[in-house]
Amino acid sequence: MHTPRLALVPGEPAGVGPELCVRLAQQPRGDHTLVAFGDAESLHRAAEALRLPLRTCAPGTDDADAPGSLALVEHPSARRAQFGRPDPANAHAVIAALRDAASRCLAGACSGLVTGPVNKAVINNGGIEYSGTTELLARHAGRDVVMMLANPTMRVALATTHLPLREVPIALTRESLTKTLRILHASLRHDFGLADPVIAVLGLNPHAGEEGHLGREEIDVIEPVLDTLREEGMRLVGPLPADTAFLPSRLAGFDALLAMYHDQGLPVLKYSGFEHAVNITLGLPYPRVAVDHGTALEIAGKGTADPSSLFAAVRTCSAMATARTGALSR
Results as ranks from 00 to 15, higher is better:
R23K: 15
L226Q: 14
L184C: 12
I299N: 09
L177T: 00
V237G: 04
P287M: 05
P76S: 08
R250G: 00
R330A: 14
R23T: 03
G30C: 10
L20I: 11
P287L: 03
V289C: 11
G233Y: 13
L236M: 11
T56D: 01
H162L: 02
G108D: 09
R166M: 01
N119R: 11
A66K: 03
A64G: 06
E211H: 15
L70C: 03
T161P: 07
G17S: 10
V156A: 01
R155Y: 08
E19H: 13
T316L: 07
H92I: 03
A14R: 06
L72T: 05
A91M: 11
L8I: 15
Q264T: 00
P248A: 00
T133K: 06
F37T: 00
A195F: 01
A290C: 15
A245V: 02
A321P: 13
L251T: 00
E211I: 00
G116F: 09
A109L: 12
L34G: 06
Q264H: 06
A25M: 12
E223K: 15
L54R: 00
V22R: 07
I95P: 13
T56A: 04
F254S: 02
M234L: 15
T61G: 06
P86R: 13
L113P: 04
P28R: 11
T304Q: 14
S272L: 15
A102V: 03
P86A: 12
S329K: 12
T316M: 13
L194Y: 07
V225C: 14
G273M: 08
V278F: 03
M260P: 11
N151L: 10
T115Y: 12
R104M: 07
G84C: 14
L24N: 05
L204F: 14
H140P: 02
A245L: 06
F274S: 01
L194T: 00
L284P: 09
D263C: 11
S329Y: 06
Q82M: 14
A195S: 11
L34M: 07
H262V: 01
L181C: 04
Y130A: 05
H32I: 01
G265L: 02
L98C: 09
